[in-house]
Design a binder for these strands. Sequence first.
DNA 1: ATCACCTTTTAAATCGATTTAATTAATTAA
DNA 2: TTAATTAATTAAATCGATTTAAAAGGTGAT
Lengths: 342, 342
Amino acid sequence: MMSNGNGHTTMKDVARLAGVSPATVSLALGNDPRVNIKTRELVREAADKLRYIPNEIGRSLRSQKTETIALIIPNTSHHVFSHPYFAKLLEGITEVLNENEYNLLLSTTAEESDEQSAYEKVLRNRRADGVIVSSASLYDRNFLRLVDSGFPVVYLGPWSNNDIYTVERDDVTGAFSATNHLLKLGRRKIVHFTGPLNHQVWRDRLEGYRLAHQQNQISINEELVIEKDLSVQAGYEGVAELLDRQIPFDALFAGNDLMAIGAMKQLLERGIKVPEQISVVGFDDIDMASMFHPTLTTVHQPMKQTGILAAQKLLGVLNGREDIEKKTVLQTKLMIRESCGG
Amino acid sequence: MMSNGNGHTTMKDVARLAGVSPATVSLALGNDPRVNIKTRELVREAADKLRYIPNEIGRSLRSQKTETIALIIPNTSHHVFSHPYFAKLLEGITEVLNENEYNLLLSTTAEESDEQSAYEKVLRNRRADGVIVSSASLYDRNFLRLVDSGFPVVYLGPWSNNDIYTVERDDVTGAFSATNHLLKLGRRKIVHFTGPLNHQVWRDRLEGYRLAHQQNQISINEELVIEKDLSVQAGYEGVAELLDRQIPFDALFAGNDLMAIGAMKQLLERGIKVPEQISVVGFDDIDMASMFHPTLTTVHQPMKQTGILAAQKLLGVLNGREDIEKKTVLQTKLMIRESCGG
DNA sequence: ATCACCTTTTAAATCGATTTAATTAATTAA
DNA sequence: TTAATTAATTAAATCGATTTAAAAGGTGAT
């Protein structure tokens, strides 16, 4: 089958079979108008016959394009793949990339500490034409360096100035609506499980929580705001601790659905009724949210859509389109189900 | 910062600064003993100063290695990322790849029909050194062609002969243990939601289901074996149809946990008690399985471990190791929880 | 001083494509 | 018929590295 000693058909092989030069093959396959139509057909036939597929590495080197974009998630594989958010995000991204014949290079960090490697590995050695970066820590200097170097980037999350392309949610409003809903239901002691506060997303959701209290003129017991690691386990244990310490609360606004689910599990096991005794609201609206009993009230965020928009935006930038808005803000929606009562 | 007009530091730049030839730079950075120690230090300093990182594309072209492996999943993005199995698989794979400084190229198919594109895109154009293929349809000829071409492949699933590297589960035994457990509990009319039967995995699980009946000398009502699409929705609707058609059954063995969860939801909504009236058993043991009420009895399969082993196996093959076993069979384990009673 | 033999360094080929500039062939104009 | 113009093809440079083979420099023996 193969034409050269190396095991694969190259442009040279096609050229030889078609009786033309490699340059002509390249131009013919690229539909360059300079090459005669008859010659083009000849080349096409030869290429088909040899089942020629261009070597992307060679092409990339010359054209300085890789037809690949990288998704950098400055976090461990375990964290990334435990959270349904990322699966949905990937679904959206890959869908767009498949349509446009782009490849996806996926990069997570081995160690939580050195976020650097994820960046360096993909970027400085030019394996991708552009990058989507999933919200990094506020103190991540690598990201800034990356942007400064002029590398095409789409950032998932809010960014302080208007210099970079972002796809973000209105987390403040989302968290506000959840908390406000609980307050309107008459809940007064609302626990909030937040995520690591060195990420903007968790600051914003906490902000929304505070804003709702403020607007309803309810003061917050700071003891009820607890930083957790976003896992089901964290929610499960978090509630256990509250109950063990006999800290009174009548509602829980979890920073994400996983923690909400863990929390509900603990409450169920302790015989505490949701929503009768404790109202629970989550954030994300993962597929499973409506499968639990009670079904989980939560703030819906368009996870897949985020991926789609981010990928489209990046491809737009790579294709030199000028009409791309820097900032895309997606709205959230409170999905009222059973876990909050009312 | 950058040294040439192109925006990036190349080997030439380092050579110029160090006052040596590019060849020497290459050898020096590769720790070749031919180059004088003092020269090597000189080159190192120059490289550091310019923050030189080799261009992988150039390196790949010459060395015919990409330091990248591809994961091919002949299915749509939607299917892939809706199933927790793939997330866990990815977790295992990326963990190993990160440790070994390999990159991951992820390939799904745009259209369910043309499985071909997923293969062609990654393989014939040599963007990866090797591939992990997630169980393909039994009729997928692309996979065979791929193997024939000598491309390093690890296949996830059983394969008829011993020619190719596989990581597989003992699905028959797993399904047997689940079904057998239900039979031992006295259940006699066990519904089985299976997946597409053109994939070996679903044939095997069905086989296990049959075997258990056979061994317990119970005959199967073929009406209870129903082919579904593996989604939560499918389980939900599948049960609805059975109930609406008033087909009697006292247990359900779902081919995967998602369908089991959907089924339990439907039963709950109809006021049918699990496990008192109907016993439910799933397959996979996804994280959520123990979060439901009742907690889901299911057949545990080591999803992450599958990814780890597959990646290690492929890297082993790529490194020319000879001691790698062709076939790795992982065992499953029945996790008895609440949903089956007893 | 010449030759042989190391040790270092470097020129040049190579990987597989693309693209510019030059060449050749064909056509038209003078 | 010859020059000018256009069309089609190709040689050669290029992308950024690696690697082989050749060259240069140094040492010691004869």
